[in-house]
Design a binder for these strands. Structure first.
Lengths: 116, 116
DNA sequence: TCAAATGTTCGATGATAATCGAAATATAAA
DNA sequence: TTTATATTTCGATTATCATCGAACATTTGA
């Protein structure tokens, strides 16, 4: 089983985190995790192919925004809240709050359209 | 004289702002402005060609992060602090603080190397 | 052992971005 | 009016990214 790379707290880079958070799909993923706790990939309601979702999850993980835990066939994603707060105080909160406050919080998708 | 596009406060998008801030050069620009106030482009000590700096300034302006005021042959850049605070409370501060706290605040460049 | 469920990796594609130097533009200054 | 200053635009190059479907891998469950 592959070992998943997660940067150490001290190696988390501001620019990389901001980049990881600069995509609407990825913002919706972290917002979902914050609201509903640790989530498997198949729990996210995002309008992209699963390979694309996998790519976004990797981007967030390698930037240090999320942690991925393997559980059976699933990958459980959680926010690295403590690490991010320690490294960049207030950043994650302000981003999540800004995202919630925005007009269209989640890239919505009708259930019927969802097919992967 | 060209009119420079600046998005209205309400049209400033979170993802676009995060993207604009996800580049080390652009981070150093906004940090410089915060410390030293309104700056002309030629005041920034960044290791890129002037055409590239112009590109970064445009990216920041079009995302709504900075305001560009024409003064003679210069473009005076300032932070849209009020607009950003109103729209995304705490975001700009946390980013600037995180940038200051980071090990290598500014993409440094010895004076002798600077040549455009 | 076989099949289903869940993700990842691969290869391709189209889009966007960072970068440069050269040329163009606009203003100020001589 | 000519020249210098400050910056933008242009065209080209190279790199990265978001996306997809297909193939692959891993683990669980029948």
């Amino acid at each position: 089983m592959k070992i998943l790379f997660h940067p150490d707290r001290k190696d988390i880079q501001l620019a990389s985190v901001l980049y990881a958070l600069s995509d609407p799909i990825r913002l919706s993923i972290i917002s979902d995790i914050q609201h509903n706790g640790e989530q498997a990939c198949n729990g996210f309601n995002v309008p992209v192919a699963k390979s694309t979702l996998s790519h976004h999850a990797r981007t967030l993980r390698e930037a240090g925004v999320i942690h991925t835990r393997v559980q059976g066939t699933q990958r459980m994603l959680s926010l690295r809240t403590e690490d991010l707060n320690a490294r960049f105080p207030g950043l994650l909160d302000s981003v999540l709050r800004a995202y919630e406050a925005a007009e269209q919080p989640v890239p919505v998708m009708k259930a019927e359209e969802s097919s992967n």
